[in-house]
Design a protein around this nucleic acid. Structure first.
Lengths: 258, 258
DNA sequence: CTCATCCTATGACACAGTGTCAGAATTTGT
DNA sequence: ACAAATTCTGACACTGTGTCATAGGATGAG
């Protein structure tokens, strides 16, 4: 019986439709501008039908966040496979997040808007757990790289620092820095013209502070960036026009082996 | 006519009453648990009266946040007056934030809960501006210290770093780190047992990364912490029991002059 | 003390949105 | 073609918001 499969597919399709419309309202009119009525109106279904997919409007928001986080996770996974020194692999992960922010601005914005107690409080246990899982997977990759760095001898953590704490702080810079780009008070008002660059700078300096070798003055991390973009995210970076056309020609700039 | 003055005082007093009750509900039942009805009930006034003080429930939340931010700012201002090397003064500012987090847990939590688009969207222009002002004053103090560090020669920023970017990242670690302590997914689940310590560690490493002298291995910043607590926040730290009883005896550990 | 004036407090009201559920509508299998 | 199963619907009961005409209580002058 094939009908069941098709129905399943239809359901998924409709769920996607709901999510897409919801995102539109959330982005254009904020939390209070997103209502079940509007989604129903915009999709041609009735309110009741939406409730067959989601427990509440907050549940929709979390589902939306999860969709974005899954996308980001897949990019991070790809990045973690970069061939290079441990610190470069960490950099690749950062680059993945950066690309995600630029390429999927809407999803990033949704994540920012939805990251609120008002939302979490009313979301379903299920979607909250999915979210938690996604988050754990993401940090696991990052701490994995740190552990490897320690094993390989690129990094020596002095107490009370631990791999988790390092990632915790790296993550804080990244998240907060990116979030600030969408806040009520734009970072430009605080004298930071380009938060994305500020994040990169902060991560680099933090890694330097922890003594993660090679330090930024021992290695050309701008060149490493071009390699990462070219090898792992060629399409994405071309789409954004942030990859030097002749990056291959720059390979000589490659990091010197220890 | 003294009546006017007294009335003014009564109004303020009532406003405080509203805010206190509101905070109670916000903390215990979250955003959706805070309603005008409940506040009215709890204070013995009617809904209409509350609307004479605040435009909306979100406006109350922002007013609550502002109260906390003002308190924190005053502690930061005190800290910035610490006598010592520039980096120690920066540390003092961090210490002030840390103390604020411990001493005024409720206000800190309110700031976390209220930091959401859902709230800002409906808050009044006026309270939002107050908030912005408070934020600017806070960052101004911090960047001021960085600038002085550069002037004095304790710090040399390499492009693209700027005082604002340094503060931006330092701030990110502090805010996000502290916020994580109240999140839906506790930091302990991510392997960080004590986020407050993680923040301190992160700030220290970041400053080291930027080359802010004296670096952490050139100076005993734990000792500096005791001096800061003892000189600037004696009461506060005694209340928390985080000041060594004999901190004065440790003065010999003082930072060596360059 | 009384009354006119002014101001503040009140809660009923109109409205918007949520989540549910009995029954209508549609699809499926025979 | 029809009964059974499944899915969709919108009216319903609620909760909460923000407003406003009016009740109620000060205040000050006579």
């Amino acid at each position: 019986m094939e009908t069941a499969a098709r129905r399943q597919r239809d359901l998924r399709q409709r769920e996607t439709l709901f999510l897409d419309r919801a995102r539109k309202f959330l982005l254009s009119h904020g939390y209070h501008g997103l209502t079940m009525d509007r989604i129903a109106q915009a999709t041609g279904y009735s309110r009741g039908t939406i409730y067959q997919h989601f427990r509440s409007k907050e549940d929709i928001i979390v589902a939306l966040i999860n969709r974005g986080m899954a996308q980001r996770l897949s990019m991070i996974e790809r990045a973690a496979g970069f061939q290079g020194r441990t610190r470069e692999r960490m950099q690749a992960v950062g680059e993945a997040v950066d690309l995600f922010m630029r390429l999927y601005r809407d999803d990033a914005r949704v994540a920012y808007l939805g990251n609120a107690e008002a939302v979490m409080q009313k979301a379903s246990e299920a979607s909250l757990n999915t979210m938690k899982g996604l988050l754990h997977q993401t940090t696991a990759i990052a701490t994995g790289i740190v552990r490897e760095a320690i094993e390989v001898g690129d990094l020596t953590l002095k107490p009370p620092a631990t791999p988790e704490i390092l990632i915790f702080n790296l993550w804080a810079i990244t998240e907060e820095g990116h979030a600030s780009g969408m806040m009520w008070t734009p970072p430009s008002e605080l004298g930071v013209s380009n938060p994305l660059d500020a994040v990169i700078n902060g991560c680099e300096m933090l890694c330097d502070g922890y003594g993660w070798r090679p330090l930024s003055h021992e290695c050309n991390y701008s060149a490493a960036r071009q390699r990462i973009l070219g090898e792992i995210f060629p399409e994405e970076s071309r789409k954004l026009g942030i990859l030097d056309a002749d990056w291959r020609g720059r390979r000589k700039n490659r990091v010197v082996s220890n």
